[in-house]
Structure formats: structure tokens, C-alpha cells
């Protein structure tokens, strides 16, 4: 069964040489790569996550780091306690209104290039606790999220799948040109304003430049 329409790859590989040509050259002892590819390859295979477990998903994140699921195969076993040394923030667990300013502060302290994975239903949208007065309905209200991993909690294999998707995304990032990656552009913010504790809710309850609520599709 062949699919007639080839779906566009969401994360195309950088560089202009096709894989067949590359393989041909490699067999002849010539390794060709572009600077972008080399740079991305180095970053992709040594992602250092921030040690940032909030709730139940954190236990599955720790389980992904243990011997059975082994995140070390992907180069990501060094969970850094300090945000200054990390380049991936896996938000695993419910983000409450009380914790949200600290999450944004940690995100601001991470140096570029940095990525965010929202692991679990609570980090994506508030999850089963969405109706709570103290629950932030998704961390993407304040910081930009690259990969969303649904589940409650997602299995460690799902987290590894999300990591692989992030690696694909990182491999496809361009350093120059009109669609260069976010971290190369000076006009894209890398630090976001930290919400303050208000009398009834966070102020502001969401950052409109990062996220706007989905518009319903008008069905005729």
C-alpha cells in the first residue's frame, strides 16, 4: 500500500543534500555536512533538561531516566538543578497560580537556545484540575511551548517520543535566513514578564503575546 500524497514532514532536515547522495559520499569516505547540520547535531544529541518536576508526571520523568527506559541514550541524562546550565525545561505536573511566577522566572534564567516541553495534561491545559481556583490552565499562557505530550501521566515512552520529536524540530532549525530559529533573532523575546500575585488571581492571568484562546470554527 503506497500513499499517493506524501505528507509534508513537519520538521524537515536542514541542508540541501539528499540522504541518498550523502550516503553515497559516506561510503566513499567523505563526510559532508553544513555548519547548520553540525551545530544542530551537537545540540540535539546532548540536550540537558532542567530538573523540574512539579507533580505526578515528575515521577514518570524520573522513571524515564532510570535504567528501564533510559533517557541517557538520547544524551539527556544530566538533569541540571540550575536553570543557567539547562537547555530544556520539561514542565511535568500541574502549574498552580502560586507556582507560575517561579516557572516564568526559571524560564527567564535559562540561556538561549532553550526549549520547553509541556508534559502531561496539567501542563498543557490545566488537566483534570482545570476547574480549580489555584490552577493555571496550561503553562503556555506565559511561556512558549515547543512540544506537548498528552497523558495523565504520559508513559515514559511517551516522554521519550516527545524528546525525539523535539530532536527532529531542533535538527530542522535554520540559523540564517527569513525563517531562522527563534533564538537567533534579536526581535523575538527570550525573557517574559513575570506575573504578580493579585488579590484574586494572577495579574495578568495570561500573557496575550504568548497565547490567545482558540477561536471556534464558524460552521455555516
Amino acid at each position: 500500500m503506497s500513499d499517493a500524497v506524501k505528507k509534508p514532514d513537519p520538521f524537515p532536515a536542514a541542508g540541501n543534500i539528499s540522504d541518498a547522495e550523502r550516503e553515497d559520499l559516506r561510503r566513499n569516505g567523505i563526510l559532508m555536512t553544513s555548519f547548520e547540520e553540525l551545530y544542530n547535531w551537537g545540540r540535539t544529541n546532548s540536550i540537558w533538561p532542567l530538573q523540574f518536576g512539579l507533580a505526578c508526571c515528575a515521577i514518570e520523568m524520573i522513571a524515564a531516566a532510570t535504567a528501564r527506559f533510559d533517557i541517557a541514550r538520547f544524551g539527556a541524562e544530566i538533569f541540571r538543578p540550575s536553570p543557567r546550565q539547562a537547555d530544556l525545561m520539561i514542565v511535568s505536573g500541574t502549574v498552580t497560580n502560586k507556582m507560575a511566577p517561579q516557572v516564568v522566572r526559571l524560564w527567564n534564567q535559562m540561556p538561549e537556545p532553550k526549549y520547553c516541553i509541556a508534559m502531561g495534561a496539567c501542563a498543557i491545559s490545566g488537566g483534570p484540575f482545570k476547574q480549580g481556583y489555584n490552577v493555571l490552565k496550561g503553562i503556555d499562557r506565559f511561556i512558549p511551548v515547543d512540544i506537548y505530550i498528552p497523558g495523565c501521566p504520559p508513559r515514559p515512552e511517551a516522554l521519550l517520543n516527545g524528546l525525539i520529536e523535539l530532536q527532529k524540530k531542533m535538527k530542522g532549525e535554520k540559523l540564517t535566513g527569513p525563517d531562522a530559529a527563534r533564538f537567533t533573532r534579536a526581535d523575538m523575546p527570550s525573557e517574559f514578564p513575570i506575573p504578580a500575585y493579585g488579590a484574586h488571581d494572577l495579574e495578568p492571568p495570561k500573557n496575550d503575546s504568548v497565547w490567545t484562546p482558540p477561536k471556534p470554527e464558524a460552521k455555516a
Binding site: L54, A55, G93, T94, T96, K98, M99, Q102, F129, Q131, G132, Y133, N134, V135
Partner: peptide, 11 residues
């Protein structure tokens, strides 16, 4: 405390 207060009792 309170950084994981998820309002379980109210829900």
C-alpha cells in the same frame, strides 16, 4: 506550602 494546591477539596 501551596505550590501544588490543586483545589481537590473544592473540585
Amino acid at each position: 506550602f501551596g505550590y501544588l494546591h490543586r483545589n481537590h477539596e473544592k473540585i
